[in-house]
Design a binder for these strands. Structure first.
Length: 302
DNA sequence: AATAGGCCCAACCGCCAGTTG
DNA sequence: ACAACTGGCGGTTGGGCCTAT
């Protein structure tokens, strides 16, 4: 017997999500939590495949997502992690709080790959590209000495980044400002050579991934907007630090969550019974969404 | 102003691993 | 052990936006 499709595709909508659909999905998940995705579209009144709902939520609607381009610091981390993990985007994303695998994959394919090639580095192997003898005069192609120098720079950077990765593991990531990044780099440089040596053999597979409760969710609009820039996307909700705001939900301040509480973990705690008081605050307030909150149907363990 | 081409990213597809009965 | 099923992952693509001509 063959594998069944993930959902009954007849009559299902495909393509870009409308804000109305987003509202329905967000409303449903805020009310009921993340449950069996297969059931979500039916229960939420969406003509979508469950998989599509899950993707939309995880890649776009999740309130803990950072928006905007990756900062230089994040980019370095991605490069370093890619060198160690390869195209395991979800693993890489797990080291960058607020970033999705899809986002990182896209950024890699559109920006970083090109950047590395331009610098004479093979994005697949992270080693200097072989010099094309037929094109050695090319301006694009760096001279061997340049490549070597750059590679040395890269190695130095990677040492720093490895340390940064470790700090991320410790929950010290999520620097929001250039100043913080700089001070972090500075403090990284203060670490002993011994630590640096240890980190040369750093392997992310050998260390636990960052736990959800270790992720500090920014309350204020992310400064990523500053890094994200001018060229920030003009897509429907692009550039916003808060999708709820964009969708017409009142601004959701994550500071209402007690981040020091060990029970608190990113979204997990979000759905705890105690936090529905906060959700009430969020959902019951005036908005043209006319959201009516019913008691959570089922609390699904995550 | 028109348009062709490139860029970017949200979303889809197909496969795989894990879970359940 | 096996089939059925779900969730998750990585690769790919379609279409809107941007820019150069």
């Amino acid at each position: 017997m063959g594998r069944q499709p993930c959902c009954d595709k007849v009559g299902l909508k495909k393509g870009p999500w409308t804000s109305e659909e987003d509202k329905k999905l967000v409303n449903f998940i805020l009310t009921n939590g993340q449950c069996c995705w297969r059931a979500v579209p039916k229960l939420a009144g969406l003509l979508r495949c469950g998989k599509s709902c899950r993707l939309r939520w995880t890649n776009y609607l999740r309130p803990d997502l950072k928006r905007g381009l990756l900062s230089e610091y994040e980019e370095k981390m991605v490069i370093d992690l890619h060198a160690q993990l390869g195209n395991r985007w979800s693993k890489i994303a797990s080291h960058l709080p607020g970033r999705t695998d899809n986002e990182i994959k896209n950024h890699w394919n559109t920006h970083i790959k090109k950047k590395l090639r331009k610098m004479g580095i093979d994005p697949l192997t992270h080693k200097p590209l072989p010099i094309d003898p037929t094109n050695h005069q090319s301006q694009e192609q760096p001279q061997p000495q340049q490549v070597l120098e750059h590679h040395q720079e890269q190695e130095q950077e990677q040492e720093q980044i490895s340390l940064a990765c470790e700090m991320t593991e410790l929950g010290l990531s999520n620097t929001e400002t250039k100043e913080e990044e700089k001070s972090m780099e500075a403090s990284m440089l203060d670490l002993s050579m011994e630590e640096v040596m240890i980190n040369n053999g750093f392997c992310t597979d050998e260390v636990p991934l960052i736990e959800a409760h270790e992720i500090l969710v920014p309350c204020a609009p992310s400064s990523s907007s500053s890094t994200s820039s001018s060229s920030s996307s003009s897509y429907s909700y692009g550039g916003s630090s808060n999708i709820f705001e964009e969708l017409g939900f009142p601004n959701f301040d994550f500071s209402i969550l007690d981040l020091d509480n060990t029970n608190v973990n990113n979204m997990g705690c979000f759905w705890d019974d105690d936090d529905f008081t906060n959700l009430d605050l969020l959902i019951n307030c005036d908005s043209d969404w006319n959201i009516t909150v019913e008691p959570p149907l089922i609390q699904y363990p995550r």
